[in-house]
Amino acid sequence: MNYWLVKTEPETYSWDDFVTLGRDHWDGVRNYAARKHMKDMKVDDLVLFYHSNKGKDVVGIAKVVKEFYQDPTTEDDRWVVVDLEPVKKLQRGVTLQEIKEDERLKDIALVKLQRLSVQPVPREAFHIIIEKSEK
């Protein structure tokens, strides 16, 4: 199993919007590195759902329920989507500041490559963030 993080602006598409839909494709990615990560996602991989700009915190866990396919929002066949389903809302959001302050998380993409909208998360880092949400 692999672990990932996807970023969204909550004013545009929030965790609550995602939960209301129950399942959705992750679209609009127009970055080659993020696209590569989406192509690497497998069914049942777990995904941290991160609110960017406003909030700047990890708020929930999703899972991959369908591997990559053509992005239906464009005719350009270079771009793909994956389908995600919500798993659970975190007990509390884990802020970017908290993540940056934890020495164990200093090398994750969220800290080093903040603009990347889809990124891998090491297994240990995933579990550290979940533990932080439970405190």
Rank of each mutant, 00 (worst) to 15 (best):
D45Q: 04
T8N: 12
R35S: 10
R30C: 12
D57Y: 04
D57K: 10
V118M: 04
L90C: 06
R104S: 12
L105C: 05
D102M: 07
A109S: 13
D71F: 06
P72K: 07
Q70P: 09
K36H: 14
P122W: 08
I128L: 11
A109W: 00
M1K: 07
S14P: 03
Y69K: 09
R115V: 05
A34W: 01
A34H: 00
S133R: 05
K135W: 08
V19I: 12
D76M: 10
D40A: 15
E103F: 08
K36W: 10
V6R: 03
I130H: 02
V80W: 07
R30P: 04
A34N: 02
T95S: 15
V47I: 13
R92T: 07
T8Y: 01
E131N: 12
F49M: 12
L110G: 02
F49Y: 09
Q91W: 06
V43H: 02
E131H: 03
N2E: 13
E131A: 15
F18R: 00
L46Q: 08
Q97C: 08
T95W: 01
Q70C: 10
K7Y: 07
Q91M: 15
W15M: 04
E9T: 00
K66G: 09
A109R: 06
M38Y: 05
R123G: 10
F49W: 08
V82P: 01
V64P: 00
V19S: 05
I61S: 02
D71I: 10
W79I: 13
H51N: 10
K7A: 06
T95Y: 05
Y32Q: 11
Q91H: 09
Y13D: 12
D77Q: 11
D83K: 03
V82G: 00
R35I: 14
K112Y: 05
R92W: 09
T20G: 08
E131P: 00
T74M: 13
V80D: 11
H127Y: 14
W15I: 02
W4D: 05
T74L: 14
V65Y: 05
W79F: 12
E9H: 02
V82R: 00
K42L: 15
W15C: 01
R92D: 11
R23M: 15
V80C: 14
L21Q: 14
V81C: 10
R30N: 10
K106V: 14
D27I: 00
F49G: 00
I99A: 02
Q91E: 15
V81M: 09
K63V: 11
Y32R: 11
I108D: 01
V111P: 00
D24G: 08
R30E: 10
S133K: 06
E9P: 00
Y50P: 05
G93N: 09
L90V: 07
L116S: 03
S117K: 03
E11T: 06
K42A: 14
K63A: 11
G22N: 05
P86V: 12
L48T: 04
K39P: 04
I99D: 01
M1N: 07
M1D: 05
L5R: 01
P86T: 09
